[in-house]
Nucleic acid binder design. Sequence first.
DNA 1: TTATTATCCTAGTAATCCGATAGGGTAATA
DNA 2: TATTACCCTATCGGATTACTAGGATAATAA
Lengths: 136, 136
Amino acid sequence: MLSKKTKYGIKALTFLARQDSSKPVSIATISKSENISVKFLESILLTLKKNGILGSKKGIGGGYYLLKNPKDVPMTTVMRILEGPIAMVPCVSLNYYEKCDDCPDEDKCAVHRLMIQIRDNSLKVFRNTTLADLTN
Amino acid sequence: MLSKKTKYGIKALTFLARQDSSKPVSIATISKSENISVKFLESILLTLKKNGILGSKKGIGGGYYLLKNPKDVPMTTVMRILEGPIAMVPCVSLNYYEKCDDCPDEDKCAVHRLMIQIRDNSLKVFRNTTLADLTN
DNA sequence: TTATTATCCTAGTAATCCGATAGGGTAATA
DNA sequence: TATTACCCTATCGGATTACTAGGATAATAA
């Protein structure tokens, strides 16, 4: 299941991608438009900022804005920041690999081989989709 | 993340698919071979039985066995029984559809459209993979 | 300068889910 | 009739999730 954090994060990012990029948008504005709790959204935008996706400005007229052109933000990046690994099991994860305790030989593991296929297909979609693609 | 329940379930099923189909295999046997806790495995096999994947036999020489030919058991079926919906969000689920509270128009929702692609790709893999494919 | 606005940051918390275990009951076989 | 092995319900600690509280900090406007 996709977490609400990721869901809200993607919604907020596409909202920002649709705006005039020069002007910051306040949390309150995004919150109202996308029906997301202010406080929860706050924490999500903060992690996006800490990970170099968003910039921010304080005070009156302040808010968040995209640091890059939407077409240069692939969904792999967004997913990894908000959701964590794209793979369904750690033993097939590219960025968060972990060996299974119970599995003596990954190459012979049915789950492993199946989940590699799922991962590859998901990666293809996330890599080929940018924020710009989602604004239309 | 794939639950351990599903992971163990797939492992147990492929183990059974490799056996002489006429003979039941005990929980203890599968448990030892696949490094799965007996009690946990017990509950997993029981749900697979209740959902028509496995048959069972009690008493000495008893155990579980596949009710169908492994090549007639697609992973879509196994996943839906053990893991639940294949989609990452209920609003794109074929078998467990649910509308989002926050989303006024699914067709205009970025998350919705992205997750449809992910679902379609995963479905393709799970549909085209049977238990027989996983035994090799 | 100071009041206002809006982000920054740490903590906490209720609810839910997960993985596993307990402890019997029931049916089949020897 | 004893043993084996599945059947079934209930529980439970720990982790995660989806928030919420409450104040600190910085920028702007008066």
